Simulated scan of single mutants.
Amino acid sequence: MIFDLPKLVFEAALKLMRLQGLTPQQAVARAKQQFPGASGLDTKELERKLEAEAAKDAAKNKTGAAAGTAVPVTAGHYAIRRSDEEYLTLQNGDRTAGTPTVVFAPAGNPAQRWELKVLEAAAGTTTCTLRNLAGGSFLGYEEEPDADVLTGGFPEPVTWALSPGPDARRFTIAVPGADLHLGISLMRAYPPRTGLKESDGQDTAEWELEAL
C-alpha cells in the first residue's frame, strides 16, 4: 500500500492547529513526529496550505459572529468576563491550591488571563480545561460538585463544558453531566467569589470569551 505522506502530515497538522490553537509551523512540527520517515519532509508547502485554512476559518468565525450564530470555541488565551466590570480572576494570581476565583474590574494582568485547552467539541458543546496564566493552576473546585461549592485554582485540571446561549457571544460554563454552572456565589465577600450554581431553568450563559 502506498501512503501519501505529505497528505497524512497535512491532515494531522490541520487537526492539531484547530483543536490546540497551534500555529501552522507548530502544527506541522508536531504532526511530523507522528509519522516515521517524515523528519526529512519539506513542509513549506504544507505550512502555506495550513495558513490558507487558518484564514478561511477566521473568515467563517467572523461571519458567524456577525450573523449572531454560535462561533466554535477554539484553544487559546482568553479573558473571561460577565460584564465590562466583571472579569474572572485568580485572586492575586496566587498559585496556592484553593486560591479563590473572583470577579474583578479589568486589570489587564495574567491573573485575568486563561489558557483554554479543548478536549472535545461536539453538538454545540465544547469540553475543555481552563488554566490561569498567572498562577498556572486550573479553574476547579475542591469538593464534589454541588450547588454553592466555591471555585478556585487547583493544580489538577478539571473539565468544563462550554455551550452558547441565546446570545451567541455568551457561554454557559458548566460541570459536564450535572445541572451546575459557574456563577457568582452567595457568599458575602469582596471581590465577589465564584462558585457552582444550579441552573433552575434560567439562562445560564453568563460568560463571554475575549480572545487575547
Rank of each mutant, 00 (worst) to 15 (best):
G165I: 01
T101A: 12
I173H: 00
T23G: 00
L8V: 01
E115C: 05
A70T: 02
D146Q: 12
I2L: 14
K56E: 15
E198F: 02
A134F: 02
K60N: 08
A12R: 11
A121Y: 11
T194A: 00
Q26D: 13
F3N: 07
Q112S: 05
A12C: 03
A13N: 01
A168Q: 10
E144S: 11
A75R: 06
P100W: 11
K56F: 09
Y190A: 08
V102P: 03
A70P: 04
A97F: 08
H181I: 00
E208Y: 03
T74G: 07
P100Y: 14
E86L: 08
E120P: 08
V103E: 06
D179Q: 04
N61P: 00
A79H: 07
E51K: 12
T63V: 12
T125K: 10
R188E: 13
S199C: 04
T159F: 01
D146F: 05
G108S: 13
T194E: 07
W160E: 02
K197P: 02
E51T: 12
A52Y: 06
N61S: 14
E198V: 11
E210R: 10
A79G: 12
L180A: 00
M187H: 10
A66H: 11
P164W: 00
S39D: 14
T43R: 11
I184T: 15
L50G: 03
N109A: 14
A178S: 10
V73H: 00
E143R: 13
L5P: 04
A107G: 15
P110Q: 10
R131E: 06
G37Q: 11
